[in-house]
């Protein structure tokens, strides 16, 4: 196998890795906010369920969670899992990352000084207006460093998709390396992850800079 065929085979894997990455963020960034708000719900049972969910997600390996989402329907309900691999994978990633983002959001929301809420209340803002116009924009700025950390971890975590034998760049590297008895695929994968992380860090730095106009 020449280097160029190796590269082009792996390029498909890189695309799939980017797919996992993008879909996970698209799903988990907003879902995390929903979970963070539910965690502050007026109804104690809701708060309880959400805190259990977060504890379980954070207390077990993502790899295990992926296996549960993939094989669970079969073992529990004897459902056919054909075609379920990719949905299970994305579901597992989104639910996992949403829990972590929820905790980051909660920390950010709780770090807001009470004076901001009171100033808004006296000015007559509704609760929704207060959250959307006054609190959320400031929370976004406060949590950017933690979100960046999480996003960079996600780039590397996508490799866990190999657990479900999904052919993203890491699974492919392993396969090609075994069949070609070559170390090269791992080097290519490594360079890919490094560049991807570099791009992510760059993008996040740009966002943080864009939010630098106030303190």
């Amino acid at each position: 196998m020449t280097l160029s065929t190796m590269l082009s085979t792996m390029a498909a894997g890189m695309l799939r890795t980017c797919g996992i990455f993008a879909l996970t963020l698209i799903g988990s960034l907003p879902l995390g906010m929903v979970i963070a708000l539910l965690r502050k719900s007026k109804f104690a049972p809701v708060r309880f369920l959400v805190s259990i969910y977060i504890a379980v997600i954070r207390g077990t390996p993502l790899m295990l969670q992926l296996l549960v989402w993939y094989f669970g329907p079969f073992y529990l309900f004897e459902w056919s899992i054909r075609g379920w691999r990719f949905p299970a994978l994305i579901l597992g990633f989104i639910l996992n990352y949403a829990a972590y983002f929820a905790e980051i959001y909660r920390g950010g929301i709780e770090s807001m000084p009470v004076g901001q809420y009171e100033a808004a209340e006296v000015l007559g803002y509704t609760r929704t207006q207060t959250f959307m116009r006054i609190i959320l924009p400031q929370v976004v700025k406060r949590i950017m460093p933690s979100v960046t950390n999480e996003v960079i971890t996600l780039v590397k975590d996508t490799s866990l998709a190999f657990t479900l034998a999904y052919q993203e760049v890491f699974s492919l590297a392993k396969q090609i390396s075994a069949s070609q008895t070559s170390f090269m695929p791992f080097v290519i994968a490594g360079v890919f992850y490094f560049i991807a992380n570099y791009a992510v860090a760059f993008a996040m730095a740009r966002i943080e800079k864009a939010l630098d106009y106030y303190r």
């Binding site: 000084p113 004076g115 901001q116 009171e118 100033a119 006054i134 924009p137 400031q138 700025k141 106030y214 303190r215």
Partner: peptide
């Protein structure tokens, strides 16, 4: 008007 101003920093 608050002692701590409580302006919206953003």
């Amino acid at each position: 008007v608050f002692q701590q101003f409580n302006l919206f920093p953003h």
